[in-house]
């Protein structure tokens, strides 16, 4: 892998991790389309991907540092007391309810699923499916919107992240397991879950990013020992992690602003079109 390829992959990873378009799907399909002679599933890539994940997680923690401060305090208070008495305690426990199924299924199925499906053509197929999921979720959402209101007013009819039910948080968190399939977007399925649970688009995105942070950070932190056990250009990897972090930060800020009135449709159509194009080109 050359320096430019490393920075390109970092940019791709950082940007697509939070956009509802599947970072894993792009990481599998794009190098194949460019005829790059490396596979990200290769064990020598672990330190590189670890640092990229840590870069992305750091960007999310910086972006939501106030929320995280409240969530950590709320988690400790709620866990010790065994009772939820404040909004930040409820949000902390909602994130816990969402993280348990995602972590559990990921723990059991990550390796077998990635080994089975991490091929470019299969990833392209799942990208098309991801597009269909996003478009279907938006179509279902439109049914529950009042048509006589402006987009901003329509959004105000829906809930904030703290108001989601525990069952919905659990199901939304569990849906993250679908993202183990390369081409299915973690943020995509969690935003769809949030929308179907009655959240505003912006709040669904915020809940999705908060839900993603512990899992992305844990995935990175758990691989940290590999950084020291395998030889590789660590300075280059660290620089790439900064690029991934910056891309993730800018992406998250863009998406939060976009979802004030924007919808998932453009990303749905993009995934369907890109997946179809990749299938044709990878024949």
């Amino acid at each position: 892998m050359t320096d430019w390829q490393a920075f390109f992959i970092a940019l791709l990873q950082g940007a697509t991790e939070l956009f509802p378009v599947s970072s894993l799907g792009h990481a599998v399909v794009v190098p194949a389309l460019l005829h790059w002679a490396f596979r990200q599933a290769d064990p020598s890539f672990v330190p590189f991907l670890t640092l990229l994940h840590l870069g992305t997680a750091t960007a999310l923690v910086i972006l939501y540092w106030r929320d995280w401060l409240g969530i950590v305090k709320g988690f400790v208070r709620g866990a010790v007391r065994g009772r939820i008495e404040a909004e930040n305690e409820r949000l902390a426990m909602l994130l816990l309810a969402g993280t348990i199924p995602g972590g559990l299924i990921g723990f059991l199925l990550e390796r077998p699923l990635k080994a089975l499906f991490a091929t470019p053509r299969v990833a392209a197929l799942f990208l098309i499916l991801n597009g269909a999921i996003l478009l279907t979720a938006e179509a279902l959402r439109r049914r529950s919107e009042r048509r006589d209101l402006s987009r901003e007013e329509q959004e105000q009819q829906f809930k904030s992240a703290q108001q989601i039910t525990f069952k919905a948080a659990f199901v939304t968190g569990g849906a993250q397991a679908l993202a183990l399939l390369p081409g299915i977007s973690r943020s995509g399925v969690t935003i769809c879950g949030g929308l179907l649970a009655g959240l505003r688009h912006q709040e669904a995105a915020r809940f999705s990013f908060l839900l993603a942070t512990p899992i992305i950070a844990a995935a990175g932190l758990l691989e940290v020992p590999q950084l020291f056990s395998q030889r590789g250009p660590l300075a280059l990897y660290a620089a790439a992690a900064v690029v991934a972090g910056l891309a993730a930060y800018i992406s998250a800020r863009f998406l939060i602003r976009y979802f004030r009135a924007g919808r998932l449709d453009p990303y749905g159509w993009y995934c369907a079109a890109f997946g179809l194009l990749a299938l044709i080109l990878l024949r």
Binding site: M93, I100, L222
Partner: peptide, 21 residues
């Protein structure tokens, strides 16, 4: 690594059990 992940899931489950009891 797997032991740590399993332990984290265990702690999360026990906290959740304490909250819903």
């Amino acid at each position: 690594k797997h032991a740590l992940v399993a332990l984290a899931i265990a702690v999360a489950c026990l906290v959740a059990a304490n909250v819903v009891r």
